[in-house]
Nucleic acid binder design. Sequence first.
RNA 1: GCCGGGGUGGCGGAGUUGGUAUACGCGGCGGAUUCAAAACCCGCUUCCUAACGGAUCGAGGGUUCGAGUCCCUCCCCCGGCACCA
Length: 804
Amino acid sequence: MAKEAYDHVAIESAEQAKWEALDLYACDLSETEKEKYYLLFEFPYPSGDLHIGHWYAFALTDIFARYKRMQGKNVLFPIGFDAFGLPAENAAIKFGKDPAEWTYANMERMRQQIRIMGTSVDWSKEVVTCSPEYYKWTQWLFLKLFEQGLAERRLAPVKWCPKDLTVLANEQVIDGHCERCGTEVEEKNLTQWFLTITKYAKRLLDDLDPLPWREEIKDAQRAWIGESEGAKLTFQLIGPGIEPTALGTPVVPVFTTRPDTIYGATYLVLAPEHALVEMLMEKVANPDEVAAYVKKVSKKTDRERQEQKEKTGVILGGITVVNPATKEEIPVYIADYVLASYGTGAVMAVPSHDERDYAFAKKFKLPLRTVISGGNDELYTGTGTLMNSGPFDGRENLEAMGEIINFVNGERVTNYRIRDWLVSRQRYWGCPIPIVYDPEGRAHAVPQEHLPWLLPTDVDFTPTDSSPLSTSKELRERVTRIFGEGWTPECDTLDTFVDSSWYFLRYLDPKNEDDFSEQALMKQWLPVDRYSGGSEHTTMHLLYARFFQKALYDLALVPTSEPFNERFNRGLILGPDGAKMSKSKGNVVNPDEFVGKYGADAVRMYLAFIGPYNEPGSYPWSLEGVFAMRKFLDRVFQLRERIEDTEASNEERLQLDKAIQKVDTDTERFKFNTAISGLMVLVRELEKQEHVSRSVYQDLLRLLAPYAPHLADSVWQEVGGEEESVHQALWPEAGARDAVTAPLIVQVNGKRRGEVHVDLSATEEEVLAAARGIETVAKALHEGTLMRTVYVKGRILNLVITQI
RNA sequence: GCCGGGGUGGCGGAGUUGGUAUACGCGGCGGAUUCAAAACCCGCUUCCUAACGGAUCGAGGGUUCGAGUCCCUCCCCCGGCACCA
């Protein structure tokens, strides 16, 4: 280590104690003189020990919090725990521990570890989602949505994990497997609670446009919402025993994005779960065959359906529909390539112009009819001129689209891929759904005076196919006592994503017993200015939180319809071998070990230096890198010995200004890696001097303070910084000094031939004269003819010379 | 397949509106110090060449006085979506 290394153990604990004594980081939310800045990071799940990922998430966001404070902003930088969830329950099942005890013990351990990082989080705003004080309001908000008809109960096919014995949200199924345990999921029908996020699909999509998020984040959400414009067309159903009823003629509506191809629709396909299938089963000529197919398909998971290479299906014998354009009767099939849950659950098949229909038609030897010219193959999905399309022949397909829809009495329709949010969980360790059922089985809200609707403690956690809460005697008795005989409790708990959809509102007013958060504070502090988190939350958490915000906005409960202004997705720290850290690979880096050796400041700075924080890359941890960062900090420490109370030299001021500018702009946009390189350059330049002006050194410490908060503060006091803590000091500003001279690059035909030092005010002639002094330039001028010169002040002089 | 983001030394990565490509760091090499080693300090380190010089940002083409940056074609990697009609 360096000649004089600082004592990181002593310094870091002393500084942390000082900050706590000064209560530096508690944000006074009611203060209005300073401009507010709400900096948010995704609150952790209390899994137990802090790993590198937590450091990367918290300690680096902390750099920005400290920077914003020094800029004179009133910074809210809160923390809490997303404390409900499966791991606590699994620990209960496995080790017989009380989930609450397990969770609270973990939180306490993590609080200590987070202190070690030197983060400036405001603990006074802490929220814990599993505490009754918090979930009281989760329940209250759920009931607000329920009152609005945004929470619904219905029977639906749901994903079921046979290992965790629970229902999973669509989003928690990764490639057909359980997100948590990797087990292949099955399907099962249960009555579940849904939040009807689909009602907000359009607004969730449209409101993305003005958000200052990276395009990739917005696009991921757009894809998830999945808007597509098309038309609903109606096909009349014909078959034995199918008669017009009082309601009209039986019809099959289909959704299509290609109504222009209607003349090419040569058959129609129903999803196996389509509502009409049951009725048609009694009329078809081949009922056994159809029933067998539907049964077989019902056992397959979505994944299996997708993976099958060949299309499968069965014809509905004797049933036809009328193509509304051609008036032909065309056959009807059931096939599982059509999804019941999208559109109308039925499609018109145009094998000549749709890949899936083509594949199906080939297999079942169904006729093709080309209605758009343009391709040379049987299958063509592009645009072109209509043919075989009656009165529309010769028209361009896109241009005739509207008229065709009208011609067949269709209507324009926009569909969304996003599904309603299934929030029921058959688990114990979650927020109880504040619903009770009357003797007729109707759902009723638990009245507000009974909130929080407490999670009972007398339950059996052992997984079964029913919810753990159903084993609680206390809960049953509570319901009987309050509502009467025959009333029963809802025994499912809420998805933890519900808890985390509004936690940033609660940070503003975490102890409020009368409201989920105070209106005036929300008005002052929303939206969140910058939200830092992992890219894995792009399509779930971010979308859910946005949905909540919009729903609450419509109820006039929050002041903005978007919760977050800026959003930054960070990357991933890999093991030293470049692979994702995992216990099985033995490449897990333990931050404590490095903190012990080199100090928290070195670890923070190393993580900041490893790669750009404003994009979701993945960066391998380097053992040498942390050490190098510590050496740099030692150099800063040693530099204090050269302090003299002299006026800053021109060179010092120039270097300092450059550094301030660099560190400032790069810190602002989360490019901590290049900000640190700017600091390194400054230190190197200052080391070249025998003496360093005290004010320059102090400014260096200010720049360093967000990055190495302990060391910077310790030395700050030693060198007589004005404020008690450097974290109370202001961010330095670059002086407006214009450089007088600058090196100017001389090029010949765009190739560098040398440089000249000239006054910035020099004219082109003067510069050219100076350039002639360069040997290779003179030679080129001698051998060729100077056609023109391009002079960019302060940058280059390019001589365009033609050879003779 | 579609959408988005990328491809720069041995490695992580810098490169404002087109204007010194390879900042900063790691690693490597050499030196200094030492009885010796580690640490620390100094220098070198894109490639080819003994040197002069030349080449170089995934490949190829184009625009320009000048292209990592802009345009076209193609290849590869990462992320998202995916039988969504």
